Amino acid sequence: MQHWMIEDLYAKIFDSTVVAIGITDQQGKYVMVNPAWCRMMGYSATEAESLHVNDVTPPEDRGSSSMNFARLISGEIPGIRLSRRYLRKDGSCFWADLHVSRVIHDDGATVELVGIFVNIDPQIKAESDLQEMNKKLTGTNQELQRAMEELEKLARHDSLTQLYNRRVLNEILEHEIQRSIRSKRGMAVALADVDDFKKVNDNYGHDVGDLALIELAKVLSHEIRTTDFVGRWGGEEFLFIFPETTCEGAMIVIERVREQVENIRIPIPGGELAFTVSIGLSYHMGNDNVYTIVNEADQAMYKAKQAGKNRCLQYQTGCPKT
């Protein structure tokens, strides 16, 4: 192919390609741009000849742009490919995938720089939208997780006292009875009931009664071991589960609980409200069922009330040897 034909082909490629091509001199002034560059930038080819690279670079990006330009001109790097922003004639910006290479003179000096780029603004925006969507999804998932945890808590805890509810206590009882059977170690169950609680509600209202139950729950949960369980059995009744313990050890705990309850004071108009609890305890070596153990603790608790209230009683006569 003859030389003029090659030059003509190059010219046609330069003019018809869909990628933008801009050629600058060593000072960064544009000397030639193709029609695709003009369409993307909003300048005519004639206008481009009066532009510097900085004129089509957002102000905040000019520092890094000038540094890369200097490295290319000096020959420190033969070429560079990067994503960068361009500033159009109308002041809008867009992202481009840019590849710049040097045009080398016969003596090895850099004569010009050729920059070829395509508009990747849609991809950048899509990635940004995707990141934002992922961020929102992450936030939604975290909110959903928190909601699920809250629902789980609500399903397992009494809404007023925040202690375990009756359903969970029954599950724990079944589990601990089976563990007691396997380990051949004793366990105790105690049932506590607030003495004369109806009078509290009748005389001071349910708000004061609720406050009394909340303060009571704090004492109950504070006085037990980390391996023990306590929950609201119903109304003003609270159930304790003491796994792998001795009868004497369980009695010490419920007596300590009873004493601490006596110290609770609830502010009321004109003074303070004090109240007491009666507690019944049943001790087993894993040889009975939930109904029997809880029923025995319940019977012991009512005997404590009949004996004068504000006391702890054990269903069994004396503590069995373990």
Rank of each mutant, 00 (worst) to 15 (best):
Y10F: 14
S16A: 12
S16D: 13
I21L: 05
G22V: 01
G22D: 11
I23T: 03
I23E: 15
Q27C: 13
M32S: 13
V33R: 06
W37P: 02
C38W: 01
D61T: 04
D61G: 02
M67T: 11
M67V: 15
F69Y: 10
I77V: 15
R84P: 00
L87S: 06
A96I: 13
D97K: 09
S101E: 15
D106C: 10
G108F: 04
I124G: 00
E127I: 08
E132W: 01
Q145M: 11
Q145L: 15
E150S: 10
E152I: 11
H157T: 14
Y164K: 10
Y164P: 07
Y164M: 12
R166L: 10
R167A: 13
I172A: 00
I172R: 10
K184W: 01
G186W: 00
A190L: 03
D196L: 13
K198M: 09
K199W: 05
N203R: 14
D207K: 12
V208Y: 05
L216E: 09
L220I: 02
I224Q: 05
T227D: 11
T227L: 09
D228L: 08
F238G: 01
L239E: 06
E244N: 07
E244V: 10
T246S: 14
T246V: 07
E259H: 02
E259M: 05
Q260N: 14
P267D: 12
P267V: 14
G270C: 07
A274V: 12
G280W: 02
N287V: 09
V290T: 11
M301A: 09
Q306Y: 05
Q316R: 03
G318P: 04
T322E: 15
